[in-house]
């Protein structure tokens, strides 16, 4: 299973810093919420439930966008394998 890299620093402004390779990112507020939930070890399903409860969005769109976002986190090497 992939989880968010523990060393990632994220601030409320949406600034994400990866100390391993020195790369910086910015996320939008909903992206900040998702990463924060991931840091609390929430699973994808739980995160989706949270989004559906708080935002006006269809489950299909939400699932697709969440998978896409996770894909981008992986692409940017912000995820790691959990042993």
């Amino acid at each position: 299973m992939m989880i968010i890299n523990r060393n990632i620093a994220i601030s409320e402004t949406g600034f994400v810093f990866n100390p391993i390779n020195g790369e910086s990112f910015s996320v939008n507020p909903i992206g900040y919420e998702v990463i924060s939930l991931m840091k609390e070890n929430k699973q994808a399903d739980e995160i989706m439930q949270y989004l559906l409860a708080n935002y006006q969005v269809e489950p299909e769109t939400c699932r697709k966008d969440l998978e896409d976002f996770m894909g981008m986190l992986k692409h940017h090497l912000l995820l790691e394998d959990k042993e």
Partner: peptide, 18 residues
């Protein structure tokens, strides 16, 4: 419920307009 916007992450690259 709040208006939904998909989560996005953007790499900060120097030389790129933010």
């Amino acid at each position: 419920k709040q208006r939904y916007e998909r989560p996005v992450i953007k790499k900060l690259e120097t030389g790129m307009p933010n």
